[in-house]
Design a protein around this nucleic acid. Structure first.
Lengths: 178, 178
DNA sequence: TATTGTTATACTCTATAACTATA
DNA sequence: TATAGTTATAGAGTATAACAATA
């Protein structure tokens, strides 16, 4: 277990890493903001999936996912096919144009990183990736921890398995006349 | 130098770490959003400074800094004193109420991190801090590259920061970038 | 004329709530 | 009744540009 001063410093670095993210965002194509890029990247990495799965991988609300997906679909980078097994669902799939866009994103991003991290060793980059991944796991697991998953692992392979089963839905307290 | 696949993965992790930041943001007091928290944290760590210096440490435009500072000042957490040496400038200083608020922020943040990272070793946290700090430096240096730092480069868990000028030099006239 | 800081405007990202259509 | 997804609305963060005051 680490000390308090370390946690304060870690919080500071987490806040500050936003500057790096903004730098990466600045090199994106005009019509492909970070949210769209994330959608394309995850579809490219994990293959076809439904909205709810994508929302889980993005760690954002499905309403947010829906907006990003609509933006990406409007540009022809993905298609939304109805799921024959559950017609409420829509299966997302990269189009050839989407693959091309994804290639362009990858090209720009890796170019910038290669330039900025020119003096990093292969091992250092791996270390950072490993620790950031673990950080995300340490946080993300709490969203599925108290939930007892049913026997069937749903579909596909779940790398993080955050299958949020709404165990507590107490957000409907009062209509709250806004 | 790392490979392309590593850079793609790093970009993915940088994008995904936003979820952790949002989790941290959710435990902040109602009237103290992340931008305000960052202002208080940096003033607590680096001491009194002017707007432009704070903007540099935040790595955001001064217009953004101005908004955050106005929010924080309106709640009495900082004071803005005119700089006698340059009356265009305003020196920012934490008030006792600001210090109290900063303590509360630190308490909440470290509590959440200690909970989530309970199974992390002291050394792992240090590694992550070190690598994130270096990442920020590798990116931020392009903004302050032409600046020559004085003999003492600060060590250990130092402010890191972009620090284009020594802290004791008040009349910053370095063109920086922009 | 250049710099410090503020304000106005616009855009992105996010969450909540209300809604639909299926299940 | 419950779930998958959409849309409307609101709030926070950021950048650009126009502006004020001072250097």
């Amino acid at each position: 277990m680490a000390e308090q001063a370390q946690f304060e410093e870690l919080a500071r670095q987490l806040s500050a890493v936003g500057a790096v993210k903004r730098d990466l965002g600045r090199i994106l194509p005009m019509d492909c903001p970070a949210g769209s890029a994330a959608v394309l990247t995850l579809l490219g990495r994990h293959g076809d999936m439904r909205m709810s799965k994508l929302a889980e991988l993005l760690s954002v609300d499905m309403s947010v996912t829906s907006r990003h997906v609509a933006h990406v679909a409007a540009r022809g980078w993905i298609e939304r096919h109805p799921d024959p097994a559950d017609r409420r669902s829509r299966i997302l799939r990269l189009t050839p144009a989407g693959l091309a866009q994804l290639d362009e994103l990858s090209r720009r991003t890796t170019h910038l990183l290669a330039e900025r991290l020119a003096d990093w060793s292969d091992d250092e980059v791996s270390q950072l990736i490993r620790l950031m991944t673990r950080l995300r796991t340490s946080f993300g697991d709490c969203r599925s921890a108290p939930v007892r998953l049913p026997a069937h692992p749903a579909e596909d392979t779940a790398p993080v398995a955050v299958q949020t089963t709404p165990a507590f839905d107490e957000t409907t307290r009062t209509p709250a006349s806004t």
